[in-house]
Amino acid sequence: MLIKSRNASDVLSSEITPKSVFEKRRSFLKTAAFAGAGIAAGALPTLPAYAARTPLSGVQKSKWSAESLPENDPITDYEDVTSYNNFYEFGTGKRDPKENAQEFKVTPWEISVEGACMKPGKISFEDLIKPETLEERVYRLRCVEAWSMVVPWVGVSLASVLKKFEPTSDAKYVAFETLFDPERMPGQRQPVLKWPYKEGLRIHEAMHPLSILGVGMYGEVMPNQNGAPVRLVMPWKYGFKSIKSIVKIKFQKTIPPTSWNDAAAREYGFYSNVNPAVRHPRWSQDSERRIGEIFKRKTLMFNGYAEEVASLYEGMDMRKWF
């Protein structure tokens, strides 16, 4: 059996230096040696401002803190959250993204804002995020595959970002797109989905206080395999709605096409709100396995955020608009 009891004196697996960090130290030493050689040669290499495991400063606590969650929702182990990912741009296996995204460079990163707004244009990731308040948001994440995690995201209010572009009254929906670059995202060389990955929200969902643009987790910049440099985090929807590595935001009047809905409309609806009552052809959605646990637990309506978001869907038939 896999149930493990721990003595207080046991070394936690989280205390052991992960191999990736160990290797990173090595590559850092190598880089440092190169830098030394560079200085000697009179040419200083430019160090990337964005490197994995860089701590973020000025992160504010929010009302969605670790303490605000029930006792049976402890934060999931960092190693698990960063080694068990669905990010098909880097491979379909759960461990593929961690393996294949290490070399992914996210600087420079530009986001194009288009459509029904007064101030469309291209903006760098830094300029988009810098004026915003970084907040820690500890949210449950429920994947459509019936597993879940609790992730301490660092992010900015999506509403606050979107309002800067002054969406017009035609902006009924917001569409998002992931980077398309098969050179850098090897998973895109396979036709698993119609690339680039697309997602969309109704404008009221996007403007909800729970909706954030995630730029980090565990107090550090977003790891590549989790959607660096910027991703959506929609805690009451199945994980695939939280699109990663965003390069395009578009305000529009019509309902935007979304990748999984295009691939299998019967299985993945536009809304994809976590709903234990609406069953899925592949997975029973009434229960889930929390990563780190063996036995399943009941899935909560709207992933436990019903109080905050249920009003968005008042009067809607959730079976039809699944």
Partner: peptide, 19 residues
């Protein structure tokens, strides 16, 4: 892999060992 995960905290079974 199971023994390694059980005794040494190995991660060969991924974060979702049952799956």
């Amino acid at each position: 892999l199971v023994a390694d995960a059980f005794f040494y905290g190995g991660r060969g079974l991924t974060a979702n060992s049952v799956e």
